[in-house]
Design a protein around this nucleic acid. Sequence first.
DNA 1: GACAAGTTACTTATCAATAGGTAAGCACAG
DNA 2: CTGTGCTTACCTATTGATAAGTAACTTGTC
Lengths: 193, 193
Amino acid sequence: MDQKTDQVHTSQQILDIAQRLVQTRGFNAFSYADIASELKVSKASLHYHFASKAELGIKLIERYEAGMERALHEIDASGGGAATKLRRYVNIYLSVLADERMCLCGMLAAEYVTLPKAMQTALDSFFALNERWLAAILEDGRTGGTLQFKGKASEAADYVIGSLEGSMMMARSHGGTERFDAASRRLLAEFGI
Amino acid sequence: MDQKTDQVHTSQQILDIAQRLVQTRGFNAFSYADIASELKVSKASLHYHFASKAELGIKLIERYEAGMERALHEIDASGGGAATKLRRYVNIYLSVLADERMCLCGMLAAEYVTLPKAMQTALDSFFALNERWLAAILEDGRTGGTLQFKGKASEAADYVIGSLEGSMMMARSHGGTERFDAASRRLLAEFGI
DNA sequence: GACAAGTTACTTATCAATAGGTAAGCACAG
DNA sequence: CTGTGCTTACCTATTGATAAGTAACTTGTC
């Protein structure tokens, strides 16, 4: 097999495994050894691709944010009103939970104070992206009369993010998505949908 | 000094320090060495009081749940309607956040899958207590006309807990309580208060 | 009330396992 | 023969945990 392809392939595989481990166990509860044994490569090989755990963590957040950005653009492009877009946003969280995972960044938010500064900065950026996008959708919906809420759209956006992340966390220990479903329906109902 | 008093004293101090560490850093991100150096005792001494980290964790949750139970009984006894009681419940979370901490159990919920079974069970019990109490208050308020919401009270209670825990988590990385204040006001508004 | 026999609350010293990380070198494609 | 993608073989620090000992106090027995 081609080496360059291999490199990309291996790097991606490392990130895939690491992401799943962070989403299920958290950043402080997995090690290079965990990835190495699963991928059947040496720990040193992991250090070749990601010099330090902090660097791996940063790449993980950046990739996750890029994926989220793509998903948000797809929602933007897919047509439908603000209410539909909000529903689709909630469904992103639902699909993560259905895979028995936490949101990568929700997990990392819990570990925030223990993370390297660069990871904290990357995390801030992820949540800022979500807040901006959500606030715009909410404001748009209120203007168009399809969404109802009071106060600043940015505050409402923070509320939505906090609610979804928290409900996800709570639902995870009970298995299944029922609790999250109920909570997200309630959240959407607040906006009149 | 009296020995028995000493034991209680030291055990409490260990729990106090461990609790703060879990609430700020998480269970997987602190060690016996952290407590030992802060309390200026040997690690072995910690193992004398709490044979294993898992045992320490269980005691931590049990004590926290007992404290919560006391706080809830105080709210019950303090008079006032369901709306006032709900407000006071939210204020418990607010005071924890004002101390720059996460809810102990909210933190542990994030680490759920990495915890010893006995800790998971203790955690379940904590959240079950909160859910039961909240559901009763909510149902009471709805019956009395002081709180408005739709659907099952237990589901509404789950929603409140998830929202509060999540908003707390999100607020923590931004310092201050403003974001949590805004979110909790919005949450309470949902119930018509 | 004296004194042996515990008990309590620690200590020092040590352990195996694991953490993240590095140095040096090998195989192989271009 | 050079660079890429790895490996083997380490290293140091830290993890939770244990063994063995000690000083200080308590308890039961005579």
